Amino acid sequence: MRNKILFTSHVANFQKFNRPFMRMLRKDGWEVHYASMGEEEILDADKSFTVSFTRNPFTISNIRAYKQLKQIIDRENYDIIHTHTPVGSVVTRLAARRARSRGTRVIYTAHGFHFFTGAPLLNWLIYYPVERFMARHTDTLITINDEDYKRAKRTFKTDVRYVPGVGVDPERFKPRLTKKQRNDLRRSLGLKPNDFVMIYPAELNKNKNQTMLIMAMEKLTAANPHIHLLLPGQDSMNGFHSKLIKEKGWQNNIHLLGYRADIPQLLMASDLSVSASYREGLPVHIMEAMTAGLPVISTKCRGATELIEEGENGYLVDFDDVEAMTNRIITVTNNSNSAVKLSKNSTKKAQKYYMNNIVIEMQKIYKV
């Protein structure tokens, strides 16, 4: 009889992080199922279920999700349940209590706890007690950054493992752009071959804090009118950033690109990766920038501090310190030799986070 595993996440879009592991398990003979809100088709699964998950923990919909999921779990007799996303994982682990007593192993990957050093007190009051309580319903807790690992290892009563992120597929960055392809892509964005181009691929929202970078452009464009900032990502703030850019008159230097499916190519067409986030787990956009061979300048958020070695592959600045961010960017633009060194170190450091290494680590955890 085949081993059977259920993956859960409240949104189906999260499957993109699980698919390498799903493919690996199917190759090893496992039957793979997936439960989510079902807003898009689930790939690389033998069977998928639509469950009434919602991000808001205080809605009746999650009670329905609990009942639906419990019915699925009790019927299917899984060997492993691997759950993701904060609310989805709470619902899943509660629904799996009876299954655990029968031998089902429950794995939870925390993609960055909402409580962390410097987090608001409210986050600690709400999220920490919940995660600590739910640890008793978890057989293996996977953390993706060192800070979360050390805290969970110290205070949670469960098996805690560290896996460095969700992995980056270096094949997405092959073949490398030729000089002509790079210049053609730049021209399609209204950029010149010799412009200095920064990029921050992220959803436009308060946490990602694109406003900090937009404000830095005042001094940056004064120092170098040929500097540009690319902001690919869906807008979750109803045009706030677009209005701000227009008010400042920086439309020629800041480019809101919306959703893009060609992030690896945009990274390879850029000169510098920048990030202004307040909170991250282990930021994929920085790992991808490193894979593309870009120097990185970021705020000192959890995860970024693990990826960026000061002066080696980039620089770290304090939250909302526009002046420090500006000065670091100017340092990179004015010193091509330093930029080359940072770039080479980024490429080398990125190898630790390649997908094949992460798959090997996950394979060890599944086989325990």
Rank of each mutant, 00 (worst) to 15 (best):
V317Q: 04
K70P: 02
L256C: 12
L307H: 07
S273C: 15
N77Q: 15
W30H: 04
A304T: 07
S61I: 01
D146Y: 11
M325S: 02
L125F: 10
I81Y: 06
H33S: 14
Q68H: 11
D46M: 13
Y78T: 05
K180N: 13
Q181G: 02
A261Y: 06
R75I: 01
V51G: 07
I358A: 09
S36H: 00
N145P: 09
G239F: 10
P120I: 06
A45F: 01
Y200T: 10
K349G: 03
T211Y: 14
K300Y: 07
S36Y: 04
K344F: 10
D79E: 14
N337S: 15
L257H: 03
A261F: 08
V91Q: 04
K157C: 10
N56K: 13
V87K: 03
K174N: 11
R19M: 13
M290Y: 04
M325K: 01
T140G: 00
S275Y: 03
D79V: 01
R100H: 02
Q234H: 10
V32Y: 01
T299L: 11
E31H: 05
I263T: 03
P164T: 06
L43V: 11
G233F: 09
K243Q: 14
M287S: 02
A261H: 11
V274S: 04
L121I: 14
N77K: 15
T140I: 15
M22R: 03
K206A: 08
K153T: 12
T333E: 14
S48C: 10
L213N: 06
I365F: 09
Y162R: 09
N327I: 02
N3S: 12
A12I: 03
I107N: 00
V168W: 03
W30V: 05
V90M: 13
V163M: 05
S346G: 13
K70W: 10
L256M: 11
L6P: 01
A119L: 12
V322H: 09
F319R: 08
T331M: 14
